[in-house]
Write a protein that binds this DNA or RNA. Structure first.
Length: 187
DNA sequence: CCCTGATTCGC
DNA sequence: GCGAATCAGG
């Protein structure tokens, strides 16, 4: 290696590698870092010039290239209404889909998991609540939530909290019970 | 905000 | 031909 190529160009080798990696499903940025000395934009640009965009999926919409009437002369708003043909071509043409397809790892449809209400209260015998609103809370009041937060009667414990604790002694005990204890308690 | 590819257009 | 800037989408 006598000379470091200052401006790496698209040599046959690099183009071949590009083709291979692209058809392998690597993303443009991955390919860019693989090749080195090119940005993903460069890769994408080359891919398009080579005419191998679309990859495996490539639903040929047979659209005759709408090529909108382009901008008058001001470089600002080049984003306008997508042409139908363009839009059609965009769907199902992303690398993500291609990869998902290539790796054959279809996600099973999201399973519906039952809604689990936040267990704020835990049927707990509350002897000395103060029914504090959020406005009543300060450094010395227990901030243990009681009830459904979306309900109008939601409130906080409001007891005097232990020094340095957000909760009163009773609720601190409930909040900070060791795992083993919780296990035991659960049964 | 991270990522993806697509497109435009000055160079 | 090249690729940064930009766009559009997940």
């Amino acid at each position: 290696m006598s000379k470091m190529e200052r401006r790496m160009s698209w040599t046959e080798e690099r183009v071949e590698l590009l083709k291979k990696l692209w058809t392998d499903g690597l993303s443009a940025s991955q390919i860019a870092s693989e090749l080195g000395n090119v940005t993903r934009n460069a890769v994408i640009g080359k891919v398009h010039r080579l005419g191998l965009s679309g990859r495996a999926k490539a639903v040929r919409p047979t659209a005759p290239r709408p090529q909108k009437a382009r901008r008058p002369s001001v470089p600002r708003p080049q984003a306008a209404v997508p042409q139908p043909a363009m839009a059609a071509r965009m769907v199902g043409n992303t690398a993500l889909k291609a990869e998902t397809f290539a790796y054959a790892e279809p996600q099973p449809e999201a399973e519906v998991r039952p809604f689990r209400a936040p267990a704020t209260v835990e049927e707990f015998p509350v002897p000395s609540e103060r029914r504090a609103t959020i406005l009543d809370l300060n450094e010395h009041t227990c901030k243990w939530p009681i009830g459904d937060p979306t309900s109008s009667d939601f409130h906080f414990c409001g007891c005097r909290s232990k020094a340095g604790s957000p909760y009163c002694e009773r609720h601190a005990a409930q909040a900070y019970q060791p795992v083993t204890d919780r296990r035991r308690k659960a049964h």
